[in-house]
Every structure is written in structure tokens, then in C-alpha cells.
Write a protein that binds this DNA or RNA. Sequence first.
RNA 1: GCCGGGGUGGGGUAGCGGUAUCCUUGGGGACUGUGGAUCCCUUGACCCGGGUUCGAAUCCCGGCCCCGGCCCCA
Length: 417
Amino acid sequence: MIQRPRGTRDFGPVEMAKRRKVESAMREACAVFGFGEVVTPTFEHAELFTLRSGQNVVDEMYVFRDKGDREMALRPEITASVVRFYVNEMSNFPKPLKLYYVGNCFRYENPQSGRYREFFQLGAELIGTKNPESDAEVIALAVNCIRSAGLENFVVRVGHIGILKAMVNKEIGDEKLAGEVLHMIDKEDWDAMGEMFDARALPRQLFDKIAAIADMKGELELLNNLDQSEATGYLQELFGVLKLYGIEDCLIDMGIVRGLDYYTGMVFEIDAPRLGAEKQIMGGGSYTLSELFGGEPVFSTGFAIGIDRVVLALEAEREIAVPAQLDAYVVPAKDDMRKYAFGIVARLRSQGLRADVDLMRRSMSKNLKYASSVNARYAVIVGKEEMAKRMVTLRDMKSGEQRQVMADDIASEIRKS
RNA sequence: GCCGGGGUGGGGUAGCGGUAUCCUUGGGGACUGUGGAUCCCUUGACCCGGGUUCGAAUCCCGGCCCCGGCCCCA
């Protein structure tokens, strides 16, 4: 027997119904915000991803050489592809450009709860503008996606890496060292950072200042404790717009560093607290990527939502309700009614109902049992007596009530309920 | 890459040195025009590969996969 590759999943009909429901709700949110869908290739030149990402991402990429000896990679994320697409073909589209995508991504990691080697993301990029209102727009979309998916318990944290990045770069000078410090901030590894500061004889004052800023997590008012700067003013303005959008429960978290390579300003994350270790369901921020791929510098803001994690978080709250798979199951009472039954089911289907008919030549008793076990809403029983009157017996599978209706009226009768 | 805990029919389980239990599900029948009840029949499993042994689902080693955690991240 051939097993499914490690870290991948098969999704059955019931699970897919739930996933599609969640996905459609988030797609609709994107559409409502004026974002248009794009689809990019599942694999790209490996270089597209190695250019912008650090060694970490490269190590966990699925890379292979194709038959033309090109180095290709399964996409570990989709933002890079969208930006490439933008640079290649959309750079003179009217701004702001609003794009969203849904797709599978691949990372060679060790699977655990909420982490898979093939996973699914929905993301959006707002290209061509950088100001508090465009960042707020993107945050509002992310929050609306999560909300319309039906999730209730989640935490939005917004930060700005400009402050720390500028401070660290300025005070430390050495670019590589500064990068390491930012990394430690991201991990909140104060011990390691302290040791490093001692070893390099860096001023203790700077350490305290960095730690104090990175530790600022909470309400917007926290910013009042910080020296007024471009970044604090930016965030205050951003929160003001969010409020106008009806989003008031965002927290400040100046400790978010995220990837640290390409994010330049606002950064934000959303957690679903009940998820455990892998509780982050979304990450995003503003960046400038296009010049990396040979385009003009363009400011963008984007995010990516982990669909798998959203589904997990939703199911931790309550079961995702999906409609019954079948509206009607047509059962012939006797063998000589079978042809009539096919005609009935064909008509129901053409009227847009989810309808099915016995294909196993089963007895009426077995057919009703089957209809029950697949959760059909109605059994449409066709027999000799009914056929003579161009009627059928419509049986409500839940209540057991049944009545005769004209064959022409089945769909409208079912739609009534 | 590292650390725990696991892998017995489709799902859930018992057995833990003598080739497998029970429940459920699937198919058929009792029931030839009325289901979710009962009864009967039937399909179907010891993750893979080595080793120890007269004999391995059971013990040992390696691998694969699953669950959870670290790292990293969605």
C-alpha cells in the first residue's frame, strides 16, 4: 500500500465542505474590500524565494532540478510570487492595486499540531501605497476575513519594527550584529542578548531601552510612554482609522519583529489562543520587495492567513455547520418504476436541487435506510399509484411525515421548507 | 534537525511469546411499497524490513507514518 507523504493530508467530502465554507467566507471578505483574485504557479524558480528570505526558509524548501536543469522550488509562501507577477506584468496598473490569493504552500518541516508540509494560505497584498490608512485597510481586511470565517476568539497585535530597527542599526552599526540582535528580540531571548551585550561591551543602557520597547504589549496608550516619534504617530493614526472601520480591540506589541528581512514598518499578527503551540493564524506587515525582483521600489502591505489553523481554531470553538449533502433521494418503490425515477431525478437536478437516485437496484426498505444514513432531507418515493397520477410521495426524512405532490412541484415543495 | 507518546479490519478496540476478540461501518438477506430496531450471512487487520525463538501482533534493532513539544514559522 502506498502511504500518503508525511505532513500531507487527504480531505474527505465532509471536511472539504467545512473548509470550502471557511474559505468562501474569507474570499467574500476580500471581494467586499475590492480585492481581486490572482493565481500564480505552484512552483517557481528557487531564486525567487531565496532572494528575499534567509537561510531558514531555504533549508525547508522543496527544491528540485527540472529536466531542463533549472532549479525550481515548490512555493513556501505566495507573497513573493504575487510581487513577481506585479513587477512582470502589473506595474503600470492603477494604484492602489488590491490583490488576493488562495493556494497551497510547501515547507519541509517537522509536522505537529497545526503544522503540515503542505498547507493552505489565503493572503492579500495592497500594492503602491504606504500610509496609516492603507495599513489600516489591510489589517481591517485580515480581521474581517477571520471574523467572517466565524472565529470569535482571536487577538490582533500590531507593532512597528521601524523604531527598534532604526535604534539597533544606529547604535550597533554592524549590520550582521544588528540582525542577530533583532532575531533575539523576536525570540524574546533576553539572556542570550545580555550575554552578547556583555561580550561585545555594548552599553547596558541600550539593552534596557530595547528590552523596554520590545516588552510594550497592551493598549494603544502604552505608546504615550515612548518618545514621540514618526512611528508612534503613525501607529496612533493607524489605530484611529481602524476605529472608524469598527475595529477597536487591537493591541500594541512592539516586540513583533517578523522575518526581519523585508518588513519595514507596520507589522501585525493574529493569534487564536486556544490553538496551543501553533496558535498564530495570520501574519503580515508592510514591506518593499519589488526592487528585489528588478522593479521600481513600491510600498506594499500584505498578510497571509493559515487556512488550516483557522479551521482548527473554529472547530475548537464549535462544530462548523455544513448543509446536508442531498436535498432529495429518489427511490423507486418497485423495479418497474426505475425509469420513471431517473426522469424525476434528472428534472430535480436541472432545477438546481442536490438530488440522487438509487443506482444499486436496492429494495425500497434498503433505499430508505440509505437515504437516512446519508442525511438526505427528503425521500422522493415513486410508485405505480403515484406515477398514474403524475405524482410522487415526498417523505421528510427527519419527521417521517409524507404527502403526495405533483411531480412538477417537487422542487418548489422542497424549497418551501 | 532534536525530544516525548504511539501504530491490530474503513473507524474504535482486546490480546502483549502458541497466527486474532468485541463493537461499529460497508455489501446481502429475513421484510416482495416505507428507514434510523432485531436476527442471520458476508467483505475486511497485526505499518514495513531485519533479528532472537521450535514458534513473534507480542521481545530486540532499523525505517516509515501518526499525535504532541523544541527550533522555526502560517
